[in-house]
C-alpha cells in the first residue's frame, strides 16, 4: 500500500482536511455523535441552524418517513446564537474539525446581526447562511427564492464578517443557477446545494396531513438524483466552490457529487440512520483513492466524462468500476 491520498480541499477561504462535512440539523450542536467516533476526523461540522433568539420549533408530528426519504418540518428549533456561543461552543473546543455555524433570520437585518455576533468568536471557522428552510413562516426560503433578496442577505452577511461565507440554496426554484450567480456576485465564498425539497404526506384514514406543519422538506436517498442535477447546474453557473448535498448515504454517492464538480459534500439524513455514516464516507473515499491510485481527491472533482469515448472503452471502464466500488 502506498502513501495515503491527499483528501484536503479548499471550499472558498477554508481549507478542510477531507471533503466530508456533517450537514446542519443532522449533527446536533457538534458532539452528540461523539459516542460513535471522533468528530475531529471529519472535514468540518456544520451545527444545527441558529437564529438570533431561541426558536421553539413546530408542533408535532414534525417528521414522517416516505419511501427512501424523510419529510421533516422541525421548524428550526434551536437554542439561539447566544446560548450556542456561551454554552455549547466551549465544549466543542476539543474537536479538531472546523466548526461552521448555520444561521437564519426572519429579516435581512437579523442575518447581518448574526454575522456581527459571530465575527469575533474564536472557534467558529465559517458561516453557512440558510436562505432555504421550507419550514418557517417568515424568512428562510423566502429569501432564497428570489435572486435579489438572496443577494441582499449574502451581501449583508459578507459585509459583517471576515469569516468565509457559504450560502445554502433551496431547490424549490425555477432556475437555481440564477440564484447562485446572484449570491456569488454578492461576495459569497461558496455555495451549498441543496436544502430539502418541499413535500407533503397525507393520512388517508384521517384525511389529515401527516405533518402538523402540513408541508415539510424532503431529504434522504429519494432526492439524490435531483440534488445531483442541481449541483451540476450550479457548478456550471458559478466559479466559487460548490458543496454538494442531498441523499448522500455512502462514499459512492459522495463520489457522484464530486465527479459533477462539488468541491466537498455534506452528509445529512444518513447521520440519523447510521451515526457512523460520515466517518465511513471519509474512510470509503480514502480506500477508493488507494485502489484507483488517485493521489489527490481533487483529481476526481469535476472529472465527469461527458463526451468522446467509444462504447467499448466506456464498457471497460464500467466493468472496472463495478469491480472496484
Amino acid at each position: 500500500m502506498g502513501a495515503l491520498p491527499e483528501l484536503s480541499v479548499d471550499i472558498g477561504g477554508l481549507k478542510i482536511k477531507n471533503p466530508v462535512i456533517a450537514a446542519s440539523g443532522t449533527f446536533g450542536y457538534g458532539d452528540e455523535l461523539a459516542p460513535f467516533y471522533d468528530p475531529s476526523l471529519l472535514g468540518a461540522i456544520i451545527v444545527k441552524g441558529l437564529s438570533l433568539r431561541p426558536m421553539p420549533g413546530n408542533p408535532p408530528p414534525r417528521i414522517v418517513e416516505t419511501p427512501c426519504g424523510l419529510l421533516n418540518a422541525i421548524g428550526l428549533a434551536n437554542i439561539g446564537i447566544e446560548a450556542f456561543v456561551g454554552e455549547k461552543l466551549p465544549s466543542l473546543a476539543t474537536i479538531k474539525a472546523p466548526i461552521i455555524t448555520n444561521i437564519y433570520g426572519h429579516t435581512i437585518e437579523d442575518y447581518a446581526e448574526m454575522a456581527r455576533r459571530i465575527e469575533g468568536v474564536k472557534g467558529i471557522a465559517a458561516v453557512e447562511v440558510n436562505i432555504s428552510c421550507p419550514n418557517v413562516e417568515q424568512g428562510g426560503m423566502a429569501f432564497g427564492r428570489d435572486p435579489d433578496s438572496a443577494a441582499r442577505v449574502a451581501d449583508r452577511v459578507v459585509e459583517n464578517t471576515t469569516k468565509p461565507v457559504i450560502v445554502k440554496l433551496t431547490p424549490n426554484v425555477t432556475d437555481i443557477g440564477l440564484i447562485a450567480k446572484a449570491v456569488e456576485a454578492a461576495g459569497a465564498q461558496s455555495i451549498s446545494v441543496t436544502n430539502t425539497f418541499l413535500g407533503m404526506a397525507v393520512d388517508v384514514a384521517t384525511r389529515r396531513p401527516k405533518l402538523a406543519n402540513m408541508v415539510g422538506g424532503l431529504s434522504g436517498p429519494a432526492i439524490k438524483p435531483m440534488a445531483l442535477y442541481l449541483v451540476h447546474e450550479v457548478v456550471k453557473a458559478v466559479r466559487i466552490p460548490v458543496i454538494g448535498l442531498g441523499g448522500i448515504m455512502d462514499y459512492h454517492d459522495a463520489l457522484e457529487f464530486l465527479l459533477v464538480g462539488a468541491r466537498a459534500i455534506q452528509v445529512g439524513t444518513a447521520n440519523l440512520v447510521n451515526p457512523k455514516a460520515a466517518i465511513e464516507i471519509v474512510n470509503g473515499l480514502t480506500d477508493f483513492c488507494l485502489r484507483e491510485k488517485i493521489k489527490d481527491i481533487n483529481e476526481i472533482i469535476g472529472a465527469l466524462e461527458t463526451k468522446g469515448e467509444d462504447h467499448e472503452k466506456k464498457g471497460d471502464r464500467k466493468d472496472k468500476s463495478k469491480a472496484n466500488f
Binding site: 443532522t26 444545527k48 420549533g57 440519523l272
Partner: peptide, 26 residues
C-alpha cells in the same frame, strides 16, 4: 411514544409539548 428520526437527540423530531415552561417549550 414519539415519532423519532434518530433517537439520539439530533433531529429534534420527537417533540412533546412541555407544560408551563417558557424556556423549554418542547
Amino acid at each position: 411514544e414519539g415519532y423519532m428520526g434518530c433517537g439520539l437527540g439530533i433531529c429534534q423530531g420527537c417533540a412533546a409539548k412541555a407544560a408551563g415552561s417558557k424556556d423549554k417549550p418542547y
